[in-house]
Design a protein around this nucleic acid. Sequence first.
DNA 1: CTCTGTATACTTGTATACAAGTAGTGTAGT
DNA 2: ACTACACTACTTGTATACAAGTATACAGAG
Lengths: 244, 244
Amino acid sequence: MKDSNEFLYPSQWLSKASAGERVACELRMRIISGTVESGSILSENQLASEFSVSRSPVRDALKALASENLIRLERMGARVLDITEKEIQEMYDVRLLIESFVFERLVHMETEELVKDLSKIFEMMKIAIQYKDADEFSKQDLEFHDTIIRSIGHSHIQMIWNNLKPTLESLVLLSMRYRFEEMYEDFERIIENHELYIEAIHRKDRELMVQSLHKNFDDVAKGRVEELWMAQETFTKGVEKEDD
Amino acid sequence: MKDSNEFLYPSQWLSKASAGERVACELRMRIISGTVESGSILSENQLASEFSVSRSPVRDALKALASENLIRLERMGARVLDITEKEIQEMYDVRLLIESFVFERLVHMETEELVKDLSKIFEMMKIAIQYKDADEFSKQDLEFHDTIIRSIGHSHIQMIWNNLKPTLESLVLLSMRYRFEEMYEDFERIIENHELYIEAIHRKDRELMVQSLHKNFDDVAKGRVEELWMAQETFTKGVEKEDD
DNA sequence: CTCTGTATACTTGTATACAAGTAGTGTAGT
DNA sequence: ACTACACTACTTGTATACAAGTATACAGAG
């Protein structure tokens, strides 16, 4: 019964996805979780046979992962890059850069609609926690930030976010699965932070925004990377429990 | 003799490029210059036959352009998005965001090597102006900023820049070709600004940095978009004069 | 005339085939 | 033992083939 699902990425999320996207999502999870170790060389043919698809979708996937800086396309094969503390910090930098920019815009905008949308997502996050559904929670968490960023209608900021999002999605998925298993009490705080976040947007309180922003970032990755990497076996096990 | 080169993108720059990159670069120039108008639908087959390649490289190119927000991949065909004043302003936002971040890092770094590298590029820019080589000047201008951004070794900031760079390259190419023809006197000021830029980095003078940063941005696109679009015929004519 | 079904000519995504180039291996000659 | 050369195994990039899906136009039923 253990072999029911060998994939790290939630298969339900891929219902409408092409083979290329499937390969990309799964490969991304494996790279970020460390299931495929950094430094190893991936070849198109090898991946094609591993995922039982042709080289075309694999090529698409590799291009996508390369643009996310998870692999580097070399003359022969694609080298898996490692995700160090530095990489995480860099993503943190970019998120801070983006969301600070977004906030600055939000202060001068009508945010009523946004706050309503965020509240809805917030409620769904709470439900996901109640039902201990790490994947659903992760999805809503990403959707939360996506909604905020989308709201200012800045296509180039959106582009940056869109490029960062897949990697972040993987990180959040892995992190949340781990914490549902091992640090369930974390979620009380996570929920509080999101509530604070909404409140900050509602009140257009820049100080509060930055504060909750930092707290939120800390919750996802910062300072937790090591225990994240230490717990790979939890990630791989954690996949099977979602299907209730 | 007018048909010697129907391409907008400098063909010499593509010597080591794959067919996919060629298509992407040329198509990008056509979109940004307005040669293919916004709203029109590009199909893979049509482009394949137009560029005399197969669909595979065309697909690569379309994916690249989609990630740069120049086209949107729809169910049937790829819709060319238009580059309005708003888009230009957005790119300006991102550049300001990136380079401000970079500067903040540079202030705490050893910049001697960087200043030397920039000085070299600066000299080459001056030569390019002397020889009225708009394409070479554009290349060096891009290389100038690339060098600055690369110097802080921040892979995610680099990613953002790498995604922005192709579009910017096209914009700069078109802008510079136009100005070599019509506004040659501009270059004195452009050169001054770059000198200021180097000086700012050398002295680690944040105020001067921001100042030259703004001046530099203004030089590329801001406030000049309209005359840029008005002068499409100059762009298309301007291609043939470079090959001396 | 309007609505509905269907034929057609597109589209995309995937699979496969092929050409050209590169790393690594082994072997022959010194 | 060591160098030179060629041969094999891969690699990538491109071309082509095919399956499945979708928009358009047109014809026939109401």
